[in-house]
Write a protein that binds this DNA or RNA. Structure first.
Lengths: 302, 302
DNA sequence: CTGATTCTCTGACTATAGTCAGAGAATGGA
DNA sequence: TCCATTCTCTGACTATAGTCAGAGAATCAG
């Protein structure tokens, strides 16, 4: 498997390298070209460019200068915050960016051209599959303090989604939601998944002494569903629970969350009688953790 | 489709970029690291390194110097040709290269680690498919003079393969093989396929005035079979024939070449009575070229 | 044997892609 | 209000990745 991945990398970088060359070849070096592209069709704040391209502030400043000197970019202070500056593409800048776009399209087309229709379809399908799985593999899962911005973001998104999907709406105050302290060791823990530093999902555990542990707050960002991330979070939560001496895991969920319900079933949870009076719950599940739950962690090492 | 390819490129370069970083991070810049790698486990001629890595001779010379200064490489004149020098890895060089290898393996493993077994299998399968098709798409097909080294290489390989596969062996002198002049316009033409500048296959046409054109010398390098290259050569030959006013194409072939025979059938060739006394032929095929044969060229533009 | 060519190397440049320290303006929190 | 922080910019460097012209040795083709 490792050999196949390395061979893939070799082949793909050769072929895909041509795409960077297309960005080049336009008298402009790669740095300014990438920047011009990243500013986007309209504008971007300089600080966001800095984080997105991971550039030194001095270097970025100079790159922007070279673009403004060429008349491709306008740099204006942000209204809201006088420290922040926003880069706007001028009409010449937009034309230049469109040209880069066109060139990249040409390279992509030149990859398809020599292939038969059937081969093209297969290539595109396989590329989509590789991409999906590489994204899935780029997601990192780790324990996170509930006070961390990522954790707060996930909580907000989770509640908002419940409010939208439950027939009855959702009001956190009416539910047995876990408080911050309850998701911090030793009372519990929170896992947050991130993709390129952005929050992508979460899942939490509450420990109840010798009694069954409780799964809470399983959520995956909508645009990352179908990548097996929910299952990965679940597996990792089970491993963490087992590592904390939990023998049985429980959870309660709402009938509107159909994918979640079927994921729990597929993962070996069996429906049990209500063990709580959570008003928003329709299903109560339970699973006895086996000996393998403690191993097979899919969490990235630190 | 173009959008999918570009999106794929974006995702893959991010993830695959990590592989170059693995080559880096070892206190050594990418240039020397790639060179150390490319020398291979044992040795390489400097001139072959130059073409393989596409480096300026002065630049390469300096890179090699830095490696010899570090005691990783030995540079010795070639026995056969005093101008050529050969780069040998010292034992320290081999150790260093093994370390690079290990790091690249680690990166590959880190891509697999977060995935489930099923996802891993799917990723590796899809990567193999993408790679196969990218290789297929990287093959270039073009008209070639029969005297060109690529053409000669293909001719040799073709005859050698016939000799090996025919029950009776193969002796060019006993066969109606086409001479150089017969494969040059206006008497005929030769297409040669190349991959990264190496010959990868061929196919030829002979024109017979208003009579049927003749397909000759269809051959694909063994390690590139199954990529649709034979079909691509055939399609292109038909287009060239049609462009030269040919209405009907004929060919003769040997029963040992089973894949070829079924390719001809699949491409619309029907078996006809022998139209020649070619001693090595068992099957004679013919196809009337339709109006679409002249279009849909899969040849790369110059 | 000779002239053209091939191969490698050196010297002398240039371009690209950064890094680092610190200054100055704007902002936010106590 | 004041102090710490954020954001951008400038100046002064460094490292990497080349490019180009030409010299000298070896080889090849006629």
């Amino acid at each position: 498997m490792v050999g196949q991945i390395r061979s893939f990398n070799r082949t793909v970088t050769q072929r895909v390298g041509a795409l960077s060359d297309a960005f080049l070849g336009r008298d402009r070096p790669l740095g300014p070209a990438r920047l011009l592209w990243e500013i986007g069709p309209d504008s971007s704040e300089v600080r966001s460019l800095r984080t997105r391209l991971d550039l030194d502030s001095g270097y970025l400043s100079r790159l922007l200068r070279s673009l403004t000197d060429e008349g491709l970019v306008d740099l204006r202070p942000s209204r809201a915050d006088g420290r922040v500056r926003t880069a706007y593409l001028t009409s010449r800048g937009r034309a230049e960016r469109a040209e880069l776009d066109r060139r990249a399209d040409d390279v992509a087309r030149s990859i398809l051209r020599p292939l038969s229709d059937r081969q093209r379809a297969r290539l595109v399908t396989a590329m989509a599959e590789v991409e999906r799985l590489l994204v899935a593999s780029a997601v990192q899962v780790g324990v996170c303090d509930p006070g961390h911005p990522h954790a707060r973001f996930c909580e907000q998104a989770y509640f908002a989604e419940l409010a939208q999907r439950f027939d009855t709406g959702f009001e956190p105050a009416h539910s047995h939601t876990a408080s911050t302290g309850e998701l911090t060791p030793p009372a519990g823990l929170l896992l947050v998944a991130t993709l390129h530093g952005e929050p992508a999902g979460c899942g939490a555990l509450r420990f109840h002494g010798d009694g069954p542990g409780e799964l809470k707050r399983m959520w995956v960002a909508p645009d990352l569903r179908g990548l097996g991330l929910g299952r990965r979070l679940l597996t990792e939560l089970e491993a963490q629970a087992a590592a904390n001496g939990v023998r049985t895991l429980r959870l309660e969920t709402n009938r509107s969350l159909a994918e979640a319900v079927s994921m729990y079933r597929a993962a070996g949870y069996r429906e049990v009688d209500p063990f709580s009076d959570e008003p928003y719950a329709h299903h109560w599940f339970e699973k006895t953790l086996g000996p393998d739950s403690a191993s097979g962690s899919m969490v990235d090492p630190p």
